[in-house]
């Protein structure tokens, strides 16, 4: 979890991850698309690989990188627990707000003296 967040905290690494969301890419292609020098891209990819965010496979003469789903699923599950608390609260708040609406309607419906 912490490794995932740390890996994504660097802006160029995040750009690489976002690019890889569209599908696997070779190092040269990533470098070209993001206008980053190839050694820099290789360094970032090594970090992402170390954190388990990407996997690499050789295709002909090239090394092709792709995202691994697991750490992203973990990240989603992690924020989901906290979000779910607020979702539950707001579901109950819906009922409160409905009661207030009904009360207001009733008041307006009463004849004024």
């Amino acid at each position: 979890m912490i490794a995932t967040l740390a890996a994504l905290a660097e802006p160029n690494r995040l750009r690489i991850v976002e690019l890889l969301r569209d599908g696997p890419r070779a190092v040269g292609e990533i470098s070209e698309r993001l206008a980053l020098r190839q050694p820099q891209v290789s360094k970032h990819l090594a970090h992402l690989k170390g954190a388990g965010l990407v996997a690499v496979r050789p295709v002909a003469q090239q090394r092709v990188y792709q995202l691994r789903a697991e750490p992203f699923a973990e990240l989603a599950a992690w924020t989901e627990r906290y979000r779910a608390l607020w979702a539950e609260r707001f579901d109950e708040l819906d009922a409160v707000v409905d009661d207030l609406k009904r009360r207001e309607k009733k008041k307006k419906g009463e004849p004024t003296r």
Partner: peptide
């Protein structure tokens, strides 16, 4: 955190 409610702001504020 963002959530929409089917009521005017004054009632949500009260709630």
């Amino acid at each position: 955190i963002t959530r929409a409610f089917d009521a005017p702001a004054r009632l949500v504020f009260e709630a």
